[in-house]
Design a protein around this nucleic acid. Sequence first.
DNA 1: ATGGTTATGTACCGGGCGTTAAAAAATTGC
DNA 2: GCAATTTTTTAACGCCCGGTACATAACCAT
Lengths: 200, 200
Amino acid sequence: MAGPGRPRAFDTESALDAAVEVFWRRGFVGASLSELAAAMGVNKPSVYAAFGDKAELFQAALRRYVERNMGYVADALAQPTARECAEAFLVGNARAVTMPGRPAGCLSVQAVVTPGDSNEFAALAENRSVIQGLFADRFRRAITEGDLPAGENADELAGFLITLTSGFAIRAADGTPQESLLAMAHRAMAAFPAVPAADS
Amino acid sequence: MAGPGRPRAFDTESALDAAVEVFWRRGFVGASLSELAAAMGVNKPSVYAAFGDKAELFQAALRRYVERNMGYVADALAQPTARECAEAFLVGNARAVTMPGRPAGCLSVQAVVTPGDSNEFAALAENRSVIQGLFADRFRRAITEGDLPAGENADELAGFLITLTSGFAIRAADGTPQESLLAMAHRAMAAFPAVPAADS
DNA sequence: ATGGTTATGTACCGGGCGTTAAAAAATTGC
DNA sequence: GCAATTTTTTAACGCCCGGTACATAACCAT
């Protein structure tokens, strides 16, 4: 299976996990290649050989972050009702942005917030946009299923949730404790439409 | 009034306004002194002479931003009822973070989001914390005045608003239009406690 | 005019950044 | 053992960063 040549002396996946942690804590600009390579336990040229330049490494780190740290999104989407879906998303996010021993906040928010580094900014903005689209689709389905009032705007509802979770990420980085975020998550559900009365 | 020596050839206030714009658009790390000085229409040594180093310039820019672009906070606090206060804050923020011709978002959120540059991060976090404290005080007063239910938690309520406006700043930078933010502001008011029935 | 004082423009500093060239080391196939 | 191939290591590159020395220009007081 292994081709010719000297075998790689480190595990790319755990190295990528280390890169995720650094980008998460420092942001894209704030993370230097020296710090990244050191955290990955590797010399800089090995980083370039395995992942490409800093921008490519960041894209790989973002993909890995999404699949390893944003599982609560898929969990929420799988909930049977729109209300449970929304609440699971908010609660799951509140927990994810305040995991003990991990950086506070969300890589997808903290890493880049200004359009200065345009490629990375675009990638993160699109990531958030995709997630918003998933919830919008879920809520559209809920409307046809009678699970949400017919007059509801699924896109606006999804945008409302993304706005809240973006805010959670900022507040978590400010040191807001998990229980405060959870209280806000439950309070926000008061702004979520009630299930329409069954007409059968 | 003017002391001895060569008079300053530029207006420090409008130069500071230009610095605000650059920090706002690029963030603290992303804004270079060359770009700052160019936007201010001045050479780098003049920046240092007038404002000190980059960190001091940023503090001055933040102060100026607060007094010139966050007037909606004071306006909101002056509203007669807690509900109007909260709604004015959300609406004012939604408008402020989507002003045409100005950078999207809020300097106090966009400039620094990671604790990497610790001094600036602390300054912004404290700025947000002070504002939260102002609203918490306002809501405490509202509780004693019977304007909010006695069981309400003024701090949590204020935190909820700050979380929303932090989210607004992120979403605005993502390109979310003003009317979407305004819709969310009004939706969020459904999560704000209703005025208790008068007991007189 | 002259001296004192402050701002301006130019040119530069050390340092850290992202990135890479080049040689040594470790593997596979023959 | 010997090429071929790939990774590792060391060292360096050019660049731009924040910050500054220095000579000059423009003002006030006398």
